[in-house]
């Protein structure tokens, strides 16, 4: 168990430190990099408790895609050198009540979860599904998601689809004067429509527009 403990404390230490650095670092891009470090260490923790599928999915979805888009946006919006003024100025302290409220809610949720876990240990076993230890992560997850919880799973998929279409509709704007390339048009051009032979009379020229 010694090695297990060493790894656990290393990863959780890195996760907590990077979460703190994420909020206090002055450079927004650095914040995103700390967020990525946090994701990676949390996925390592997932792998350590045997949820390797979840850990890998966390790496692929959050680190491989979501955080890249975060970085993309942060770099494109040119907020890289903007100072994080949370701890410096008094102006931005209007966020403070909201932040306190959220942290209070999270705190009470933690108390409920840990309290239930500590004083009524059979709560966890009665709430969680029975897990077959002999089959792999992905199999046991699939057994639950695609049978008992299929409607909730599909509903969440629909919500994501609606959100995606909504985001596209909100940012889509029709621009005029954009030249588009149509492969079919280009390929189906014939010599007869592309080239026109004109007999030009001398000293008269030719009108190209007709």
């Amino acid at each position: 168990m010694l090695a297990h403990a060493i790894f656990f404390y290393t990863f959780s230490f890195i996760a907590i430190i990077s979460a703190i650095m994420l909020t206090v670092s002055k450079n927004t891009v650095h914040s995103v990099f700390f967020l990525i470090l946090d994701f990676i260490s949390v996925s390592c923790l997932f792998i350590m408790i045997g949820a390797e599928f979840l850990g890998m999915m966390m790496l692929i979805v959050y680190v491989g895609a979501v955080a890249v888009l975060f970085l993309f946006v942060v770099m494109m919006l040119n907020v890289t050198q903007q100072e994080n003024q949370w701890f410096i100025s008094t102006k931005s302290s209007t966020h403070l009540p909201v932040g306190l409220l959220i942290s209070l809610v999270v705190f009470f949720e933690l108390i409920v979860v840990i309290g239930g876990w500590k004083y009524k240990p059979d709560l966890v076993t009665s709430m969680s599904l029975s897990i077959n230890q002999n089959i792999t992560n992905a199999h046991s997850l699939g057994n639950v998601i695609y049978t008992d919880y299929i409607h909730i799973f599909q509903l969440s998929g629909m919500i994501l689809l609606v959100a995606m279409i909504g985001a596209i509709v909100l940012t889509f704007r029709q621009r005029s004067g954009v030249k588009r390339q149509s492969y079919f048009k280009q390929i189906s051009r014939e010599k007869s429509e592309g080239v026109k032979l004109v007999d030009v009379e001398s000293n008269k020229g030719v009108n190209l527009d007709d």
């Binding site: 692929i60 491989g64 890249v68």
Partner: peptide
Amino acid sequence: NVGILYLFAVSSLGVYGIIMGGW
């Protein structure tokens, strides 16, 4: 058990080297 996912995850992380260098 999740070998192919690991490969996929690592290859998708490869973009960070490039973004970090570029930025």
